[in-house]
Amino acid sequence: MPANPLLLQRLRSRIAAIERDGTGSPHTGDHLAFGLPHIDDHLPWGGLAGGAVHEILDGDPRTNSKTGCLNGAITSFAAALAGRAQVARASPIVWIAPRSDARESLYGPGLTAFGLDPAHLIAVRVPIGSEFAATALWAMEEALRATAVGIVCAEIEDLDLTASRRLQLAAEAGGGLGLLLRKDEGALPPTASVSRWRITALPSGPAHVAGAKITNLPGPARWRAELVRARGGQPKTWQLEWKDDANEDHDAADGFAVVPPLRDRPLPEADQGAAAIRIALETRQTA
């Protein structure tokens, strides 16, 4: 007889509450589901736990402090989660990032593609300097304590165990959901975050234009999502794809989709080349 999912969920929440010395946050059940049974059933909380901080590492091995920016894959993955939180919690998002004129910044028209409404995003910019980490952590703590915020994303690199514990306590107190966007620089010190993910860009699948699959156009965004660590859960890796309405393999609703393990894919044929690209673009525009 299959287990009742509701019962399982309730038991998991109770275990989680016991694990936190009985001071279970009232928001424990307020998790953020991926909308994918593959992942949600694997995670002990039925999604990303609410009242908790999760880390998302930039899995690109060549991203380092020198190149100075987080790549688009981690941004879009976080944006997709934030967009889900925006809808599920009907609350705006706070995104904390270093302030620098030379750096990249969030771009609203691109965020909409991942289901995030830029009109309900509060961008907090922290001046770069010796006090950056302290100020950014303070801002994140404040945002996590505020009940009116759906999700808090923060690009903070320097994080020790004490600081992450403070963030975790703030999240438990306010029921906030925090995402820490960090670079994966070798041996990261242990943190109190509830889960840690590593996100890497993957070559996309075929693009769907007017019902045809075209392999030399960039297809929907793909990520390798590695669950590196989860409190009370097992590590696992998935290949995810972002499905939107341009991608006709799926239903109209935007969301994550699991991609079967990568097979050998035929290389784009050389003779199709640029002509095919332009034809494809024209068909897309007329479609």
Binding site: C69, L70, G72, T75, S76, A79, S100, D101, A102, R103, E104, S105, L106, Y107, G108, P109, G110, L111, T112, A113, F114, D117, P118, A119
Partner: peptide, 13 residues
């Protein structure tokens, strides 16, 4: 906010 063509989520300053 709805762009006619795909736009990146991050734009360089």
């Amino acid at each position: 906010w709805q762009p006619p063509q795909p736009r990146p989520p991050r734009l360089l300053a």
